[in-house]
Simulated scan of single mutants.
Amino acid sequence: MNEPLQGLAFPAKTDRSSLVPVLERIANTSLNHLREGGYISAEEAAPLLPAYRSALTGSTPPPDFLIFVAETQAKKHTLTVDGEVSRMQKLLRSCLNDRVSYWSFGPLPGRATGLYEHCPGLRGICATLGCPATLAGETSIVHIACINPVAALVTSFWIRQELNRETDTEAPFVFPFLLDLTIWQGLMQRHFAS
């Protein structure tokens, strides 16, 4: 089983408050890898999880953990938030054995609403976890876009589980991809703007 998923129980309810423990688990796993990879020291890391938990209760949509960390680190490293996110993505991908690829081929194929029309419960999950997803074909291929590879792996497992429960066909192929910050923000807006 994938390390980000070990011991992770997906809640039966998918409202925002029920998803907070999943976001905290993604943050904790991401932070452990960032610390082990030398991106952040133990001293710098210590206040981040409590501060992130506080941020989860206040903002809508919830911030992605990498953006939250990047905003803090950008000030220290005199880099942009985008530059910090890119540095963290590279480190996390290597820690996760490159199981999440970079998408650099333009927009993801498929309609923004296709997956959510087929399985309405996934819209809230994908929005909260910061992972817009599309169906490429019927339900056999799903593309997930994210800036955090840990969140992408959790979401891909969850989507596969939900689609398997809804249909009696073979398990779908779910492909998680990383995007740069600007493209991801545009996709989040396109998929989840009210």
Rank of each mutant, 00 (worst) to 15 (best):
Y52C: 04
N32F: 07
E162L: 02
E170R: 06
E3N: 06
D82V: 03
L49G: 04
E138Y: 05
V100A: 08
Q6C: 02
W158F: 11
L163C: 03
A151K: 04
P4A: 03
G124Y: 10
A127N: 13
G137F: 05
L178M: 14
G110L: 02
N28Y: 05
R35L: 08
P109T: 01
S194L: 10
F177T: 08
I144T: 08
F175D: 08
R190K: 12
L178K: 01
R190M: 08
E3W: 02
R190W: 01
P21R: 08
L179C: 07
W184T: 05
W158Y: 13
T169S: 11
T182R: 11
H143P: 00
P47A: 12
V154H: 12
A127Q: 15
F173T: 15
L92F: 06
I159E: 11
L187K: 06
E44R: 06
T72E: 15
T57R: 14
D98K: 11
L56K: 13
Y39D: 12
A55T: 07
V142H: 11
M88T: 07
L8Y: 04
H33V: 00
L108C: 07
L19T: 09
A27R: 01
P47L: 11
Y39V: 04
V150S: 06
S59V: 09
R53C: 03
G114L: 01
R87Y: 01
L66G: 05
F10L: 15
V69I: 15
L34K: 07
V174F: 10
K75D: 04
L79N: 09
S18D: 14
M1F: 08
A45H: 06
H118F: 13
V150Q: 04
L187N: 14
K76C: 05
M88V: 11
S41V: 11
S30W: 03
E71N: 06
T134Q: 07
A145C: 11
C95G: 00
A74E: 04
G37N: 08
A112W: 02
K76I: 12
P120T: 15
F175K: 11
L34M: 14
C126I: 12
P11M: 15
R111V: 01
E36D: 13
A70P: 00
R35M: 13
A133D: 10
T78D: 04
F10W: 13
G83D: 09
A152Q: 02
G186P: 04
R111D: 13
S17H: 09
V142Q: 11
R160M: 13
R111M: 05
S94E: 14
W158H: 09
F68H: 05
L5Y: 03
R165Q: 14
T167F: 12
S17I: 07
Q73A: 15
A145T: 01
D64K: 00
I40D: 04
L8D: 00
P149M: 13
R123E: 09
E162V: 11
L48D: 07
A42Q: 12
P176C: 13
I67C: 11
M188F: 10
G186N: 13
L48T: 14
L129A: 09
A55W: 09
T128F: 01
L122K: 12
R25W: 03
